[in-house]
Nucleic acid binder design. Structure first.
Length: 193
DNA sequence: TAAACGATGCCCT
DNA sequence: GGGCATCGTTTAC
């Protein structure tokens, strides 16, 4: 059984963590997937919730690294982030897509869909598939909800601009495994070998 | 009290 | 495959 990533892993520049999280696994109560898409957010740029300073909602985001920051989007979807950098900084990696690994049936039941590709190919979809809700906001990422080190071959990393935001769109802080078909749209081209 | 902020799903071509 | 309609919370005024 593999040990989850320790809090120290997250206590580093958020862009580095975002890049290295591609290929890692997210597991919640026996249901898991391989991370194929992430985005970095830092309090110094306006697309980050921490940009506005500490508010009731972003308290966890400004807290200790290695914990889950879960927030509601569109009033419906829970989005999963991993808090990074030192305690008090305000930075996180948004997990945008997974490739299903364990508990496919559970995922399909929660999602109301069967095709594996549609189970976790979006930030709101993967939280629904894994059963991650706002109740997990602030919880450590080495407990019932955990992120585990990568196994198998390294991903074909593609870098691009973040999506779904209106500010600081030019920052190349989106990382994908270009070899996966579970990445949320728009797909990124393979890196030029 | 009011405006801003997003991801998904369905209907269409 | 692509475009359009949808909701609730948070923060600012």
């Amino acid at each position: 059984m593999t040990a989850p990533l320790a809090p120290a892993f997250y206590d580093r520049p958020v862009v580095d963590v975002a890049r290295e999280l591609v290929g890692c696994h997210v597991r919640h109560e026996g249901v898991s997937g391989r991370i194929v898409e992430t985005e970095a957010y830092h309090f110094t740029e306006p697309a980050c919730h921490a940009y506005a300073g500490v508010t009731p909602r972003t308290r966890v985001l400004h807290g200790a690294p290695g914990r889950a920051y879960v927030y509601l989007s569109y009033g419906i979807h829970s989005l999963l982030n991993a808090v990074c950098e030192a305690d008090g900084v305000g930075a996180a990696v948004l997990i945008r897509a997974l490739e299903p690994l364990e508990g496919l049936e559970q995922m399909a039941a929660r999602r109301g869909r069967d095709r594996p590709r549609e189970l976790c190919n979006g930030p709101g979809k993967l939280t629904q598939a894994l059963g991650i809700g706002l109740g997990l906001n602030g919880s450590a990422l080495d407990g019932p909800l955990a992120i585990l080190p990568p196994d198998g071959p390294p991903p074909r990393l593609a870098v691009g601009e973040r999506i779904g935001i209106t500010k600081a769109v030019e920052l190349p802080w989106r990382f994908c495994d270009a070899g996966s078909n579970c990445v949320s749209a728009p797909r990124l081209p393979l890196p030029t070998a």
